[in-house]
Amino acid sequence: MPHKNSTKLSHKERVNTIIEYIDVHIENPVYRLDLDTLASVACLSGYHISRIFKSHTGEGIHQYVKRLRLENAAKQLLYSKKTIQHIAELSSYHNFPAFTKAFKQHFGCPPSDFRERKNIVDFHDVYPIHTERLVKGKNIIDMQTKNLPDQKVVFMLKIGPYEDAANRAWAGLMQYAYSQQLITRETTNIGITYDMPEFTHEEKIRYCACITIDHNHKAQGDIGTKLIPGGRFATFIHQGPYAELCYTYDYIYNDWYSKNNVTLSNHPSFSIYLTDPIKVEPENLLTEIYVPIE
């Protein structure tokens, strides 16, 4: 039994390694993200890593990489000024008709139509809420521009519907962090949502719970370590329940972005939780959202 458990932990570590490698290099066409390359990264045969990866994520490696590339392309179409040809190349499609065909198969329309219609989801149907709050971003009590250094974190990644994935990630990470005495007065809690619900099916949403550390730490199993890239960020302080963060994100990407002359970075946005939900009422919770900009 101990051998079986250690093997299971080893498999999780290797899947974490592959997912992190893909996330770092997904928008750089110089890096090959084929089975042979990823098997080498995980130090396993292609057969074994393919089987292990699918058992943990529910998707084959090729399917996973292709989907992320197309979903990242969708974000670029809506929230960047890059040409469609350039976006296709960043998505590792050097044959433009092949990119158009793959994009249409995934999203139901060619990339040019996708870019023109902008609001691809009616958020009033998905997230029922008072229109005035949605349009004006009433949960936002402060907006600034900040520069941050890289942040070293211990993390746990979970996949599934946002609330469920976030709850599982934080429960697992905190149990581990306290057992390893990683929590200090200086610890910052950070949540990263890699996917946008208007592009990604809820069962495939990736949520990463992170805590900052100031030293090297050897993680294992579901737990990993990484650097959250620093840089320049537009920041927004959201006051209110975590369940309403989606409305603030919607305001940022579909209202604030369209009215401000900014270029979004390719890195994912993240949230820093400023208050303790155990001690603070939901309507008074403060969450600082960091949107990377160039």
Rank of each mutant, 00 (worst) to 15 (best):
1 M>F: 10
102 A>S: 14
10 S>H: 07
60 G>W: 08
50 S>C: 09
21 Y>V: 06
224 G>R: 04
92 S>P: 01
135 V>A: 03
275 T>I: 11
202 E>G: 00
289 I>A: 06
213 I>Y: 14
57 T>H: 08
17 T>R: 15
118 K>H: 15
213 I>H: 11
261 N>T: 12
7 T>D: 08
173 L>R: 05
119 N>Q: 15
46 G>E: 10
159 I>H: 04
86 H>P: 00
4 K>R: 13
177 A>R: 07
12 K>W: 03
4 K>Q: 12
138 K>V: 01
254 N>Y: 11
270 F>V: 15
176 Y>V: 10
18 I>T: 10
243 A>Y: 06
103 F>I: 00
5 N>G: 02
245 L>I: 14
289 I>P: 02
81 K>A: 01
102 A>I: 02
116 E>H: 14
49 I>H: 06
230 G>W: 12
188 T>C: 11
18 I>Y: 04
31 Y>K: 08
251 Y>M: 00
213 I>F: 12
13 E>R: 13
202 E>T: 02
13 E>G: 08
199 F>R: 02
254 N>I: 01
155 F>N: 08
82 K>H: 15
236 F>C: 10
151 Q>P: 03
158 K>N: 12
21 Y>K: 09
284 N>M: 10
52 I>G: 05
134 L>Q: 05
169 A>E: 10
173 L>Q: 07
111 P>E: 14
17 T>S: 13
51 R>L: 09
51 R>Q: 14
243 A>W: 06
27 E>G: 09
278 I>A: 14
76 Q>G: 12
70 L>F: 08
161 P>L: 14
97 P>L: 02
246 C>R: 02
246 C>P: 01
